[in-house]
Design a protein around this nucleic acid. Structure first.
Length: 198
DNA sequence: CCCTGATTCGC
DNA sequence: GCGAATCAGG
């Protein structure tokens, strides 16, 4: 793959948006994050806004996209439909609000037949997200509490008081306690703010 | 171990 | 110019 004008543009755009080199590379396809970083440097646009130390513990942006700089409309000749090799619906759930973590509350043992409030499932989560979860649960590694690690999805499934209980165990999404699918249902798109009854 | 960007250096 | 390998850090 070569750095065509379009690819470079996307690179600039994404880099400007604070996307990581690996994400950009993934999006572009055909290049590694090293290539992206190398290109970024060659283009002379290294540091983005202030924060040099990349990343590290999750972080992520909690800030909204603010582009004080309005770019003059350039006479684009060709809209070019970019059919990214594999384009998945971008799921940038930046402004999401975490709901109560269903992680087994502490290490408390829940007696059988007792109420299990947390289980967030049939709520007002996007049906797609739920469907995704159901699908994922089939592939779940079904780990036990003690098998969980920092990199395993800690989403609980089933009733803790029965045999039919396990944790998802799939690879977590960086910085999150759950796998992608479960992050989808754990974090609401920001809304669902029930009207205060009064 | 996962990830991040930075640099080097042969091609 | 390119980018894998390597480095440095969280």
């Amino acid at each position: 793959m070569s750095w065509t004008d379009e690819r470079v543009e996307l690179l600039k755009k994404m880099w400007g948006e604070g996307q990581s080199a690996s994400q950009i590379a993934k999006e572009l396809g055909g290049v590694t994050r090293n290539a992206v970083i190398g290109k970024v440097h060659r283009l002379g646009l290294s540091n983005r806004a202030g924060s040099t130390s990349s990343s590290s513990s999750d972080s992520s942006a909690t800030k909204a996209e603010a582009k004080p700089k309005a770019k003059a409309a350039a006479p684009k000749a060709a809209p070019a439909p970019k059919p990214a090799a594999d384009s998945k619906p971008d799921l940038k759930t930046e402004s999401a609000e975490p709901r109560a973590l269903p992680i087994s509350a502490r290490n408390k043992i829940i007696p059988a037949g007792q109420p299990l409030p947390p289980q967030p499932s049939a709520n007002e989560i996007s049906p797609e997200a739920l469907a995704k979860v159901n699908e994922v649960e089939k592939k779940a590694k079904k780990l036990s509490l003690m098998e969980l690690t920092e990199r395993t999805c800690k989403w609980p499934v089933g009733d803790p008081a029965t045999e039919h209980f396990w944790f998802c165990g799939l690879p977590v999404q960086q910085g999150k306690p759950y796998c992608e699918a479960h992050v989808g249902v754990a974090f609401q798109p920001m809304s669902s703010r029930r009207d205060r009854r009064r």
